[in-house]
């Protein structure tokens, strides 16, 4: 039953995105932001599956964004698709290297080490003005997409369609991964790591592969974000951005990949509402919503809709 529900929701959601985005031009950028944030939150969801939380994952969005900017500066003729892939590859490589180190830690150590590394990146980018443009960041010109030169509106439409395809594809892949042996083992880290080791599996290696996947997803999100915004700033790697990703992941719930995108939609609506009515209390609003969600619906929106509840999501053996 629940797979049918998910399928229906993906189709309706995709049609809604295309319909609204293409018919109402002012919705185009918010729609791409939703998909980009959703992809990043999907990366965080992968970590949540393993029972780990990272307060620094925005650094991978930042790495991918700056890769796009640097690469375009060196080779202005490069196609947008090449830039996105390059950004994602560099973020994945960075995740692979940093992952070797951080997967040795659990819980708060894992979270804070990621936070510390992202703060290092943030302050280096903000301070090295000659290379990174400091806090002003770097501009990114509109590249061609698949060899076609678009005007502004066409470019955004193409990015919207591209992000939608990427989001659905990544959601499907992540869901496949969750059901694979490696994905089930990842969930086993949360339940009982010692038992996992007794089965002959290396918890570190499993967590590492999850970490690399999550870095790749956040990297893809960052590359898309950089292209649609036309600007990269150190803010992309600030802890608040990481906190927003975590927020979306918790709000949407980690029981199914689709949760990340549902969370991203709600998040963006709150954000637009806050920008219109309540300026300056954005973080407070996020914090309050987060507490309410944790107290009232710890499995998130996806959990409330009973998606992906083949087994009991909470509890189990300790």
């Amino acid at each position: 039953m629940s797979t049918n529900l998910v399928r229906t929701m993906v189709v309706i959601g995709a049609l809604a995105f295309l319909g609204l985005g293409l018919s109402l031009p002012w919705l185009k950028t918010p729609a791409i932001f939703v998909l980009s944030y959703g992809l990043a939150a999907l990366g965080v969801v992968v970590m949540l599956r393993g029972g780990q939380i990272s307060f620094g994952h925005a650094m991978y969005a930042c790495i991918a964004g700056y890769t796009v900017a640097f690469l375009q500066r060196a080779h202005p003729e490069l196609d947008g698709l090449v830039l996105i892939i390059a950004g994602m590859v560099v973020a994945t490589l960075a995740g692979g290297i940093i992952g070797v180190f951080v997967v040795r830690y659990r819980a708060i150590f894992f979270g804070m080490l990621n936070l510390a590394l992202s703060m290092v990146l943030f302050s280096l980018l903000a301070k090295m003005y000659e290379i990174s443009g400091g806090t002003d960041g770097l501009r990114i010109d509109r590249p061609t997409l698949a060899g076609i030169t678009f005007d502004r509106s066409g470019y955004e439409s193409a990015l919207l369609i591209g992000s939608l395809v990427a989001a659905i594809f990544c959601g499907w892949l992540v869901q496949r991964y969750f059901r694979s042996a490696a994905g089930e083992a990842l969930a086993g880290i949360k339940t009982n790591e010692a038992r996992l080791e007794y089965l002959g599996l290396s918890a570190r290696r499993i967590l590492w592969s999850g970490y690399v996947i999550s870095a790749a997803l956040v990297g893809l999100s960052g590359a898309l974000f950089a292209l649609v915004q036309g600007l990269v700033t150190p803010e992309m790697g600030y802890w608040l951005r990481s906190g927003e990703f975590v927020f979306i992941a918790i709000l949407g719930g980690s029981v199914h990949a689709i949760g990340a995108f549902m969370g991203a939609i709600v998040f963006t609506v709150i954000k637009l509402g806050a920008a219109a009515f309540l300026t300056g209390v954005w973080q407070m609003l996020l914090g309050i919503t987060l507490i309410v969600v944790i107290l009232a619906a710890p499995t998130g929106i996806a959990g409330l809709l009973r998606i992906g509840t083949r087994r009991a999501p909470e509890g189990g053996a300790r």
């Binding site: 949540l48 029972g51 780990q52 939380i53 307060f55 819980a107 708060i108 979270g111 906190g243 975590v246 918790i250 300056g280 209390v281 954005w282 973080q283 407070m284 996020l286 914090g287 309050i288 987060l290 507490i291 944790i294 710890p298």
Partner: peptide, 16 residues
């Protein structure tokens, strides 16, 4: 994890 997140949420509220 949720306990950790509650303190994180409280931090965001306090900052504002």
């Amino acid at each position: 994890i949720l306990q950790l997140l509650v303190t994180f949420a409280a931090f965001m509220i306090f900052e504002d």
